[in-house]
Write a protein that binds this DNA or RNA. Sequence first.
DNA 1: GAGTTAATGATAACATACTCTCGTTATCGC
DNA 2: GCGATAACGAGAGTATGTTATCATTAACTC
Lengths: 135, 135
Amino acid sequence: MIAPSLPSCADRRPTRQRTVVRAVFEEIRRPLSVFEVLEFGRRVVPRLGIATVYRHVRELVGEGQLIPVWLPGGVVRYELAGLARHHHFQCVQCHRVFDLHGAILGVEQLLPRQFRLERQELILHGHCADCVPQD
Amino acid sequence: MIAPSLPSCADRRPTRQRTVVRAVFEEIRRPLSVFEVLEFGRRVVPRLGIATVYRHVRELVGEGQLIPVWLPGGVVRYELAGLARHHHFQCVQCHRVFDLHGAILGVEQLLPRQFRLERQELILHGHCADCVPQD
DNA sequence: GAGTTAATGATAACATACTCTCGTTATCGC
DNA sequence: GCGATAACGAGAGTATGTTATCATTAACTC
């Protein structure tokens, strides 16, 4: 028996739902929770179900197209894989999470003797441009 | 009716359990989950119950003696209030969390225009001294 | 187009962390 | 000590986020 020629994307049918879930991340370009994906996705597919969003997000993570982003005290969010190394900002008012680009200094000096650094994660909190109080 | 004179510590009886929960934080000196507190506490009070730990941790947080520490992807931990500003290191192997002392530079530069920074949080991941692979 | 079958989505089930209940135990004031 | 009552702790209950079920819908093959 010869293997079937090029199983296209693991034999998945390219449904509107699957396309929309991926498109939401492409368009919004910040880490999104499953409920945020549902909310944006329903603007295109109004009857989109939460189970379908969970299903596709799980698959996209499994395929390495999405990366989970855990922020303190909140639900898991997801963002497109392959972005340059970056940090995150969470608004204390609207709770949206934004990407921050750039590097910080002095991290190595914090490390106790014998400890080995493998990953660093900086999370800033405050008011985003939409929520910052006006004077 | 005259108010009772000086309700000592909100009329709470100083039981062994309450004493032990606080003492664990004093002794271990790193952020602890409720289960870690239970584990250490049972070395002193073997029949210590999880409900009692939750109860006292909740009260100590309410009194401002403990501060919750949320690290990505994990359970809530708690640490003594009043420590100098610091960051955290989590071991990818034993999952223990340690305090890091010192400051980092360049955080302000990451912030997009109009965003207002109110709190920063740096979490380092890697192997702690006990878990780092030997050559 | 018609039949086949994967995908959907409403809802039930599950997992986990946490809180409540209530009979028992320990501490208090006297 | 002794009675009153706060605290304990085993286990039930709750809340929330995620997965499984299954009848229905939609995409594919021919």
